[in-house]
Design a protein around this nucleic acid. Structure first.
Lengths: 148, 148
DNA sequence: AGAGAAACTTCCTATCGGGAAGTAGGCACT
DNA sequence: AGTGCCTACTTCCCGATAGGAAGTTTCTCT
């Protein structure tokens, strides 16, 4: 990693990434995005906030949200994890952090195009969880009954 | 009404589950599937094993794999986590575990239809990680340069 | 008899997430 | 003037959890 320009390196490396390899950067990236808080934050910022509309694809209305808004929507997230996860997503360029020096300072977060592209995946995950919940529950009962 | 058909039940349940609520079962399910080992195992069993083909969608050839095969493919997974994760996926009905009493016992794992449907999501995640790796790397450099 | 192989299981420890309390800095009310 | 409250964090402590390594079981081959 010395004389090659970053852009060149990236272009060449694209073919080489394989998330199954422990040392591969794409594996680390996959590890990071395979995180419950990452998925939920992307869903929140991607606009599929309320319940319902789980099955059908509907227009995304990605919207900027304030720290406290996200905190309220993602019931159960600790402030520490929220801040930490938002920072890492900002670091990777998935969202932008904007500070407005209002009365009490206002910080808003918004998905970038890159973040939006990942949002398509996370929205799918959330929808899957909600639509197949009943099936999974049935399978669990079944399994527990068999192994009792 | 216990005579409700599964499809109906699912359709109704859809409206009720909301992964944003901390207590909702679908939230717990989302937490479980938003796990790096879950994603990688599903990718492995779903058939997109080798490197390459990062961008284009290609035919899945879900295949049964032995414990040791998975262990070898997912470099870096500990035996404990592999066993644990496979059990939880079996418990939820995403894959089947088959023991064949051969010379040294052979255990093979295979995706169920439910697991296969989730595989579509996880494959997307893996592809996303591999195709956008370069972009993320660039964003990180950028971020670090700005905040240095 | 002893080695070896597959698929775990158990134990120990390092790391990580959650809970709660503390911080900054500006306004607003008494 | 001082007390208190607001947002968006940061810090600290502790219990839960992931990882590494070694042990277990059962059978076969040498």
């Amino acid at each position: 990693m010395t004389t090659m320009k970053a852009a060149q390196k990236r272009a060449q490396a694209k073919v080489e990434y394989n998330a199954f390899l422990a040392g591969c950067p794409s594996r680390q990236l996959l590890d990071r995005i395979s995180d419950k808080w990452v998925v939920l934050i992307l869903c929140a910022l991607g606009g599929d906030n309320s319940r319902g509309q789980t099955g059908a694809a509907h227009a995304d209305t990605p919207k900027a949200m304030r720290y406290s808004e996200i905190s309220r929507l993602l019931a159960g997230v600790s402030q520490k994890m929220l801040t930490q996860t938002l920072r890492s997503l900002e670091h990777d360029g998935l969202l932008t952090r904007t500070v407005t020096p209002t009365v009490p300072v206002t910080v808003s977060y918004e998905l970038t195009d890159l973040g939006l592209s990942l949002h398509h995946m996370t929205r799918g995950l959330r929808n899957w969880a909600q639509t197949h919940m009943a099936e999974v529950l049935a399978n669990r009962e079944n399994y527990d009954a068999r192994t009792s």
